[in-house]
Nucleic acid binder design. Structure first.
Lengths: 131, 131
DNA sequence: CGTGCTATATGTAGTACGCATATAGCAACG
DNA sequence: CGTTGCTATATGCGTACTACATATAGCACG
């Protein structure tokens, strides 16, 4: 958004949350939430669901998903097991741990507060919903 | 939030938006909004107001404010003039330009959409407002 | 005079981002 | 049979950004 519009999605796209940067941070709570809700169980599926939910304007980087899964596993938030692929590549299946649920809870607290702060900011700002 | 709580604000702080990272990106719309609303006119004042509004849990870095002001000026979003300090250090006074207002408008559009997406996400997630 | 506040600005080590690339099994197509 | 494409996971790497530290300077206060 340096010159108004997105450098990644081209001129015609309009204001784009790419400019928010580090949306990849949201991949962490997104993964935990999908696992907690049972809507996805392995990396590739998470990637697809996450892109469908699209908290961000830009597609989520697969590399970020896989790396985040490793980080979450090292932190004890998820566990994984290999599942042999029957007529498909192997999948690394993930499950969320109690620690992971707590971590997600913390994220939700933070994001809820943040969403309200953002909403309040745009309401206050010229051109926002406030006037 | 790597181990549950904020590494910057200590153990007792609780879930903290520090973990969101790159909140500094929000400094740009924050500056533009404060200038547009006439609530601040120079770096130090912006810093104080921005910390008072606190879109984030962590105090805003002065370095980020000054650097962002320079970037915004180079992008034509603001203009600045030195004002001699009467009994105080000199101040570099800023004004927002029409381009800056447009840029702010784009930011507001993005942030409004993003705030709604976040709100929807926390509502969907376990522990969020949805159940 | 030394500490602290206002005020602006720069330096820098480390890290995260985002894109490119690697690997691999299987299917379908011509 | 070869090649393209999809599912699936994983790593490499140059650049940009973050976050903190530091520099400068005028003035006030005790």
């Amino acid at each position: 958004m340096r010159r108004g519009y997105c450098h990644r999605h081209g001129q015609a796209y309009g204001p784009c949350s790419c400019s928010l940067g580090r949306m990849t941070r949201l991949v962490e709570p997104l993964i935990l939430s999908l696992l907690a809700r049972g809507e996805a169980r392995y990396g590739y599926e998470i990637l697809e669901r996450a892109n469908a939910e699209s908290l961000t304007d830009s597609p989520i980087d697969a590399a970020v998903v896989y790396r985040t899964l490793h980080v979450l596993e090292q932190a004890g938030c998820v566990t994984s097991t290999w599942q042999p692929g029957a007529g498909a590549p192997q999948r690394r299946m993930y499950e969320i741990t109690p620690e992971g649920r707590q971590h997600l809870q913390d994220w939700v607290t933070v994001l809820e507060r943040h969403a309200k702060a953002l909403q309040s900011f745009v309401t206050r700002s010229p051109g926002g919903g406030g006037e």
